[in-house]
Simulated assay, not measured.
Amino acid sequence: MKILQLNLNYCEAADDLLMQNTRKLKLDLVLIAEPYRHLDTQFRELDNTHKAIIWSCGKLPFQGVVSNREDGFVAARIGIDSIRFYSCYAPPSLSIEQFSKFLDRLTEDARQYFPVAIAGDFNSWAVDWGSRFTNARGKVLLEAMATLDVVRLNIGNTHTYTKRGASSMVDLTFVSSRLTRRSHS
């Protein structure tokens, strides 16, 4: 299964590139944060805010869609292993209390399923994934993910966000440990 996770940051050019690369790379699933436009397809699910999307763009249909009425994340099962995928977007405007509640809802849902893949823009900084410092959101995110049997796929110090000379690593992907043996390609 070929999967792409990205943040379009409401950018038209990024949206155009996504459409081109989806065909070129023959992707099966795309997890999107901050879309430029809403996909005109029946094979997509959105969170309540329309800022997190799961798009089944290949030949694998959704086997089950749930949690699509949450703010900040959407979840769906897809694939032969019935992996439960989560696409997330936690805006930087959330207070630490709101962010904690968002993570509580996310992890409470994810604890009920195995295996899972959780990806998105968490707007959190932590030394663990290459940031210069760990902020309060990063600490809360680390604690929340520690309650699940997941590992972070991001490796190295490749920035996931760059704008006007500023850069960071806020787009993260976590998967059940069982999936890590097959996730490198």
Rank of each mutant, 00 (worst) to 15 (best):
M1C: 10
K2D: 11
I3S: 01
N9Q: 05
E12I: 15
A14P: 05
D15I: 07
L17T: 04
L18A: 02
M19C: 12
Q20R: 10
N21S: 11
R23Y: 14
L25Q: 12
L25T: 13
L25E: 13
L27T: 01
D28N: 00
D28S: 02
V30E: 00
L31H: 01
L31Q: 04
I32F: 08
P35Q: 02
P35K: 03
Y36I: 01
H38S: 00
L39T: 03
D40Y: 12
L46D: 08
N48T: 07
N48W: 06
A52S: 01
A52N: 00
S56I: 03
L60I: 13
P61F: 11
V65H: 06
V66A: 09
N68P: 02
E70F: 00
D71Q: 11
D71M: 09
G72M: 02
F73N: 05
V74Q: 00
A76V: 06
S82A: 14
I83Y: 04
R84E: 07
R84I: 06
P91C: 07
P92A: 05
P92Y: 07
S93N: 07
L94P: 09
L94N: 09
F99A: 04
S100H: 15
K101T: 05
F102H: 05
L103K: 06
T107Y: 03
R111L: 13
R111G: 11
R111T: 14
Q112P: 06
Q112D: 11
F114K: 01
P115N: 08
P115D: 06
V116L: 06
A117D: 09
A117V: 13
F122Q: 04
N123G: 03
N123L: 05
S124Y: 07
A126N: 08
R132K: 14
N135D: 02
A136M: 15
R137C: 07
K139H: 10
K139I: 06
L142T: 12
E143P: 12
A146P: 03
T147Q: 05
R152L: 11
L153Q: 14
L153D: 13
N154C: 09
N157I: 15
N157L: 14
N157D: 15
T158G: 15
R164E: 10
G165D: 09
S167K: 14
S168R: 05
V170F: 04
D171P: 03
T173N: 00
V175T: 09
S176E: 02
S176Y: 03
S177W: 12
S177R: 13
L179D: 06
T180I: 14
R182Q: 13
S185F: 08
